[in-house]
């Protein structure tokens, strides 16, 4: 390093690096900047051509979408659905992950492969029959339907991340507990689960983010009473005079919780998004 610093041209290289890094940051952040600033413009200002960069911000769009257009209700719907499906996925997925990590049984590999395939299946494949079934039994436009169908992608995430996590718990602890005569469930619940909490938390965050972001199922399976926030944002897009400020205000409200969660989990993000394939 010291040798490098003394070499000619190092200053240029450092400058080049700084420039590139700033470029990357701008590229990533600019759309956000534009989303937030547009959400603070009046409709008149948003439709200025060319666009205005400096203006007096107003929260009018936010108060309007939250109180008049019912975005508040759709945000609550999104929250109910995302939290419930995450809790359900954790409750069902953790024991399964534990079994895949700790128990020996026939067909383990096939079962695990089947779990993986669920991650690859396009939602449109399930959206069609789910719509018909749900319509028949009168559950269209309910939270329950979304909570259940979101399990198709949340359960695999929880199982994968947690299987990995359970494997990293020292096996000697299991052996010691078995010698003490503890039941398998007891060992899982009282010894391994507490130690696997970091993985459980990460999978919960992912499960929440994916459910919160989902659009297609929400579009197909809800109408009014269970409509989620992304579906609401899309419904602003109908008609000719698009309310840009309102659309961007709703978008900002949708994106902010996800950003916060992602930044909290940013260290585990790669692991989560690759299903543990990359550490």
């Amino acid at each position: 390093m010291k040798i490098n610093r003394a070499m000619p041209g190092t200053h240029n290289r450092m400058g080049m690096q700084i420039l590139l890094l700033l470029l990357i940051i701008t590229f990533c952040v600019f759309p956000f900047y534009w989303m937030v600033t547009t959400s603070l413009k009046t409709q008149l200002l948003a439709l200025k051509s060319p666009p205005v960069w400096l203006f007096e911000p107003t929260f009018q769009n936010y108060t309007e979408v939250l109180t008049k257009d019912g975005v508040a209700k759709t945000l609550i719907n999104s929250l109910i659905v995302a939290v419930s499906t995450t809790m359900l996925a954790i409750t069902l997925g953790c024991p399964a992950a534990y079994a895949l990590a700790r128990f020996e049984f026939r067909g383990k590999r096939d079962l695990w492969f089947w779990f993986i395939t669920n991650r690859m299946v396009s939602p449109i494949v399930l959206a069609l029959p789910f719509f018909l079934i749900v319509r028949k039994i009168g559950l269209l436009d309910t939270h329950l339907v979304l909570i259940l169908i979101y399990l198709t992608f949340n359960l695999p995430i929880v199982i994968w991340i947690c299987t990995d996590q359970f494997r990293s718990v020292p096996f000697e602890l299991n052996e010691a507990a078995m010698l003490e005569g503890a039941s398998p469930f007891r060992i899982f619940r009282s010894i391994c689960l507490p130690l696997a909490m970091p993985g459980v938390a990460v999978s919960a965050i992912f499960s929440f983010i994916f459910s919160w972001n989902e659009l297609m199922y929400a579009l197909v399976l809800t109408r009014n009473s269970a409509k989620t926030a992304p579906a609401m944002a899309v419904s602003f897009m109908e008609g000719y005079n698009l309310p840009y400020g309102k659309i961007m205000a709703t978008s900002t409200l949708i994106v902010i919780p996800v950003i916060i969660f992602s930044l909290i989990a940013s260290k585990q993000l790669v692991r989560g998004l690759t299903m543990g394939a990359v550490k």
Partner: peptide, 16 residues
């Protein structure tokens, strides 16, 4: 800042 694009709701990317 690299985290931001990945976390953005896909539907919002289209609206943006």
């Amino acid at each position: 800042s690299l985290v931001l694009p990945m976390a953005t709701t896909y539907a919002v990317v289209g609206l943006l």
